[in-house]
Computed example of a mutant assay.
Amino acid sequence: MLVRIVLICSFLMTVACANRSEKSAFIDTMVAKHRFSQHELEVLFDQVKINDDVLKKIAAPAEALPWYKYRKIFLTDSRIEEGAAFWRQHAETLKHVSEQYGVPPEVIVAILGVETLYGRRSGSYRVIDALSTLAFAYPPRSRFFAGELEQFLLLCREEKVDPLQPAGSYAGAMGMPQFMPSSFRSFAADFDRDGNRDLWHDPKDAIASIANYFKAHGWIKNQPVAVRVFAKNENYKALLNDEIKPNLRIDELESARVEFSRPLPLDSKVKLLAFEQEHGNELWAVLDNFYVITRYNHSSLYAMAVYQLSQALLNYQLPTPYE
């Protein structure tokens, strides 16, 4: 028992030393690269905490679930009803933003619904704690999160925000649309032109920021997102792989005896995806706009949840079905 305790203590001391070394190197980089004050950063990071709960959460993301379980999280009556109410409340802003950026209102609202329940759950972790934990104590993605921590400190300096104040998700995503710091700096919009890009409290800025993000990542106005397809035999399986970007012609799917639930232009590029149900797979042909949604979260489950929620919201808003 004593030997075990000594080994555990030794391990924890090693981790703590590694964290201090990573933190010191990060501070040195920020001073040299961006002319931050060494003293101010040292004082700041003395108040930063490595959060074990962050490490537990990132090790078990919801995207690891099968589709039929993942879908149930987001496609609920309450989320649809709340989304329809949000749409009605912000209809004018959504109309103007959709016209300006070419992104449909239902997709923007669905992103907000999946991310934060329309702004009600934007996260309770201090962003600097979450990002520091993942940058200094999560080796698999430390490089990525160190980059986001760098962007966060730059953002706080630009927006004149105390780095200890913003709260967000366990991964450091912020505000109603859950932008990572790099996305915030690049795509956040001040739609109401009040001089402040407020993604925590201003739905207008959040709505416009999502649309701006999608447009910048290649959203195609009036293009479908996904179409349900049905396989006549097992030939379709040869077309499945881990890629998400559309790279197949319509005739290639038809040659594999895959039938479309509704026609698409013959020059469309599509990707065949299979979503796990309790009894077999559900097949979808997805287009470029589906891929754009995955730039928000690199998961086909996430993009399909956004798409299906958007269609549920549209059906709730309109008297006639829409797919």
Rank of each mutant, 00 (worst) to 15 (best):
L239T: 07
E276N: 12
R262D: 00
S299F: 08
P263N: 08
L239F: 12
N289F: 03
R295P: 01
N222K: 13
V286I: 15
T294D: 05
F290H: 02
D242C: 10
S268A: 02
G218L: 12
A274R: 00
H298Y: 14
Y302G: 05
L287Q: 01
F260L: 11
D288A: 12
I250Y: 03
A303I: 06
V286R: 04
G280E: 01
R249I: 01
A226M: 11
L248D: 08
H217T: 00
S268N: 02
T294E: 03
F290E: 06
N247Q: 14
F214T: 03
K232L: 10
A305V: 09
Y291E: 10
V270G: 03
K232T: 04
R262G: 00
D267Q: 11
V292W: 00
T294N: 05
P265W: 06
N281S: 06
N247M: 12
R257A: 12
P224V: 08
A285Y: 01
N235D: 15
K215V: 02
V270D: 02
I293W: 05
N222L: 11
A285V: 01
E234K: 15
K221E: 10
I250W: 04
L283P: 10
W284K: 09
E276T: 11
E276C: 02
E252F: 12
L240F: 12
S300K: 12
G218W: 11
V270F: 02
E278W: 02
S299D: 06
Y291P: 12
D242H: 07
A285E: 04
K271Q: 13
H298K: 11
E276P: 01
V270T: 03
P263E: 08
E278Y: 04
S261P: 09
L287S: 05
K215Y: 05
V229R: 01
I244N: 10
K269W: 08
V270R: 01
Y302F: 13
V306T: 10
H217F: 03
K269H: 15
N281T: 03
D251G: 01
R249L: 07
K215A: 14
P246C: 12
L239S: 08
Y291W: 14
H298D: 12
L240M: 15
V270E: 05
Y291V: 05
K245A: 14
I220G: 00
I293H: 08
L301P: 13
Y302P: 03
L248P: 07
P224T: 04
W284E: 07
A238T: 15
Y302A: 13
Q277A: 11
E259Y: 07
L266H: 06
R249W: 11
N212S: 09
Y236K: 08
E259L: 15
K237M: 13
A274N: 02
L264P: 01
L264E: 00
Y213T: 00
L240A: 10
H217D: 08
F275R: 05
I293P: 07
D242L: 10
K232W: 00
E259A: 14
F275K: 02
Y213R: 06
A305H: 05
W284R: 08
F214M: 15
P224A: 06
E243V: 13
L239N: 09
A238D: 15
N241Y: 07
A285L: 01
K221H: 09
Y213C: 00
S268V: 04
D251V: 01
V229F: 06
A256Q: 09
L301E: 05
S300F: 14
Q223Y: 12
L253Q: 08
R228Q: 13
E243Q: 13
Y291T: 10
R257G: 01
